[in-house]
Amino acid sequence: MIVPASPDPAKPDLSTPPVAENSLASALPPFSPSAILPRLLARFPAATIELVPNPGPAAEHSLLLDAAHAREIATFLRDDDMLRLDYCSNATGIDWPEKEIVDTVKKSVPDPAGGPDKVVEEKTKRIQPGYLETVYHLYSMARKHGPVILRLRTENRNDRIFLPSLTPVWKSCDFQEREIFDLYGIVFLGHPDLRRLLMWDGFKDHPMRRDYVAPDDFEWEPTPHGSVLDRAKGHYPKTEGLNS
């Protein structure tokens, strides 16, 4: 059953380019979010689903689901015969802290002196509220296609940090959602066993958040130079004693 003919580099048809280039060059894959989106909207009219574009060369766009319908949609994606996204490869969290965005609007102001219009840049600052996001990379082992990327966003980063767990749909999210809970602090509703995964149980705070400040109060080894040393000295006044 194996064709013994070894691929000849001279034949161009055999030399399939690597996937990175492949996804660059080709147009949208058949199971692209833009193909799925209308179907989802038709199926779940109440849901708000957005397409989140990916401006990079990978061009893997994703679907932003609302938390209320996420599990239904996920179940649909898993069981739908065309998609059969039976395998959730990767689930991860992202922290998007509050961001100050400067909008620059160019306006042409007529010159009172009567010359040509002056272009004036008007800058308006606005605060984009921060949120936590989870990303799920779905593939189909049955159909061998993918990825379909789902995103879920919390309302903010402080108290409204609840998202539905997709572990009941894909068990592979079990440990990964526990990890997100541990490192980002997103609370997954409906997760069967939501405990910290990597950090210890008594640990406070969530180390993967962007504003996390590492406490240097644990087993600090005074490294001999730079800012590290200064911090170390704060904890160990007698660093010189260690040196001798």
């Binding site: 990175a20 990916n54 401006p55 990079g56 060369p57 990978a58 990767n90 991860t92 990379h137």
Partner: peptide, 22 residues
């Protein structure tokens, strides 16, 4: 790299090893 994201995965000896970068 330009703004964007990518998920690269390969068949590691232990299974699918993926890196997700933004």
């Amino acid at each position: 790299p330009k703004v964007g994201e990518a998920y690269g995965r390969l068949e590691g000896p232990k299974g699918e090893l993926g890196f997700y970068l933004i």
